[in-house]
Design a protein around this nucleic acid. Sequence first.
DNA 1: CATGAATGAGTGTTCATTCAT
DNA 2: AATGAATGAACACTCATTCAT
Lengths: 226, 226, 226, 226
Amino acid sequence: MSSTKPPRVHAPRLAREQRVDEILLAARELFCEKGYETTAVAEIALKLGVVEGTIYKYFATKRELLLKVLEYWYEEMFGDYARDLAGQSSHRARLHLLIWRHLRSVRDFPRLCRLMFREVQSEHDYRGTLLHDLNRRYTQLLVDVIEAGVAGGEFRADLPAPLLRSLVYGGIEHHSWNYVCGRGALDIDSLAEQLTSLVCEGIAVHQSSQPSTPVRGEGRKRGASA
Amino acid sequence: MSSTKPPRVHAPRLAREQRVDEILLAARELFCEKGYETTAVAEIALKLGVVEGTIYKYFATKRELLLKVLEYWYEEMFGDYARDLAGQSSHRARLHLLIWRHLRSVRDFPRLCRLMFREVQSEHDYRGTLLHDLNRRYTQLLVDVIEAGVAGGEFRADLPAPLLRSLVYGGIEHHSWNYVCGRGALDIDSLAEQLTSLVCEGIAVHQSSQPSTPVRGEGRKRGASA
Amino acid sequence: MSSTKPPRVHAPRLAREQRVDEILLAARELFCEKGYETTAVAEIALKLGVVEGTIYKYFATKRELLLKVLEYWYEEMFGDYARDLAGQSSHRARLHLLIWRHLRSVRDFPRLCRLMFREVQSEHDYRGTLLHDLNRRYTQLLVDVIEAGVAGGEFRADLPAPLLRSLVYGGIEHHSWNYVCGRGALDIDSLAEQLTSLVCEGIAVHQSSQPSTPVRGEGRKRGASA
Amino acid sequence: MSSTKPPRVHAPRLAREQRVDEILLAARELFCEKGYETTAVAEIALKLGVVEGTIYKYFATKRELLLKVLEYWYEEMFGDYARDLAGQSSHRARLHLLIWRHLRSVRDFPRLCRLMFREVQSEHDYRGTLLHDLNRRYTQLLVDVIEAGVAGGEFRADLPAPLLRSLVYGGIEHHSWNYVCGRGALDIDSLAEQLTSLVCEGIAVHQSSQPSTPVRGEGRKRGASA
DNA sequence: CATGAATGAGTGTTCATTCAT
DNA sequence: AATGAATGAACACTCATTCAT
């Protein structure tokens, strides 16, 4: 009969920064497990033993939360690239390092990759984001290596660096998709080798080992284009 | 006061197949215009002058409808590949043709590509689909060409064909993403050239140091890429 | 153990028009009882034994529902004004009729008045509404009577009709506010008399019964204005 | 990564009264700019460089804050009415003064009027408020003038003073509504003249048929009314 | 005296899908 | 074969208010 108003139980008071980190972490996990759309803000709150409103104190919108989660991740990824790259003895080795490290990221956080590609990059509000910038700086590393390699005479001149970048990152993405979706494994060492080799040497048999290059002449004729 | 009741005009009864085609067409257009999630089944019905229930007579779920739309598209894409490939004089030319035709598909139906990638391939129910099968057969064409080229001595032995496939299709996907998302254009002729060259000759300067077909003049320019 | 999915129980199927009327009625009642903001769409649905979505089938938004409720009411109010006004023997009598009928509306649907004034007229989206138009046509009736009275020599020339209209409708509104808010009664017969008299004869003692008009001269001097 | 914690700067401790004034001022401004419902307590706090809790130290609820804001305003409005009224030479002049001063208030603080009418007077908790009392004393001024005018023989006997009060204040409210809602201007001098004249002389042509001060030339023109 | 983290209840709106007619 | 009324579950976001520090 006596209707006792349940006493307000507060979650432990945390410093702003701690809370923010907590939320980012919980959100990352849930977004990875269930995807962005399928994760309700309420779930994130529940996971923290907190109330929805609390999350909105720190992140204006669910999407902002997603963006921040990914920014967080990118910042982790940058790590000590500069030093590591400098330590390599050739541009090919540097390229190999970039490929290998990217594969490692994909292997370690496959769902984040998926989020990045599915939920973020395809939306119109992506451009101009801090995240967009981070992404560009990240993939720019590869472009830089290519250009240095060209300058150093290790790579052919006039390479279309942006296309190469797409080839590498897009190729990795495509090839890891099954893994990212939870099927199969990812042998990053062997893949990194193969990729580097493909990109550097190409698939064609070179003249040194075989005389004829009829292929190349043909290529110019433009298959079905024109 | 209360809005006048619209006269009950039954939509003409069409042969089942005709209806199905009608629906697929309308759905394709709307999905392309607005995306899958953002298109309501009601809208598709409206566009046909039909009622929601009618659509569910032919397609069990909205998702099935999406899948069928894409299957239709894939069947279109196969077209007369076999004959066209046979008409090429070298494996390099065949590779170039595949790349060029894929780029053409991307250019002509960017939204369908986007749907394929964003809405379908990443979902768990994709495996085992007819669509999945179609997609595999489609990309298998490239694998076949590679293997034939290897067998014919035109390409290096022991190439990791599946990885190559990912490189090509993933690379194209990645590079066209901006275009697919409505930003920029897509010069498919030049891209096809560059891609074929990159894949065949690689980026490294060859020991033989022969002038080695430089990747044609596009240098730093970027297609629609970010 | 056996989890039986509860069978979907549908509310009785009604013709579109009937449902619309039902909803308008229920909404009117609840808006009147509890006010617009305080009434949840869910409540209206509940009252009809229907689900929220059903209401949104017929009304795009809660606000549209409010507007329609009020339009409905205005259309009732217009009734057979034209004929009734024509039956009056003088313009003063017509004015009295308008005042009396308006008071009757206020008495019968005080909460609707309140809604009209509080929730609708003060919002920016009011202008250009059908409701706005209805309201103008309604109050225009008074302006017409005034002008006819002027033309017929019964009322003074050069009356500021719109101001008069405000005086009458605003005055009634103000005076009925307590009643509208649920306090006290509303003797519409006596009020109509008094109002008509005040508006027609004014408060000043007329010369016919008293010689001096010092008041009027004073008036011109402008109290504290200038 | 996580946003940098803002340095904890305590707002300077002010004397209680000073704080109260500050809050009232900020609240008034925001309520006027954005309306009551649309202004969040947090915004008021922000404007003061203070925290929400602080405001609740001085005002138990948001609504109490609104009420106090309006009380403040009423107290300003009273100003030196008594002296000014006494300075008028006739009751008609006094009436004119009251009307003019009220119009001036409306013109100068339209949003406060709107708040008063929309948010306060229509709520059930209004009765018995200090604000209610202030409002009554304010409008009572007019009743007093009327009664004095009757006693002095300047106005007709047996006037329904409260109805008259409604006529004047309600009429002004109604007529200024567009202005209050941000549309059009308000010519208070001319309006005051017209209103006084209408109230005093009425609209009817008097039997004596004396030239009877026509309501000054404004004819059909409308103030800011709809 | 001031902070500011946390609450918690609330709500309009959307949509794929079902099914009686 | 088609209709179209009805379902029902879901969800992002807001905000006045409380209270431990």
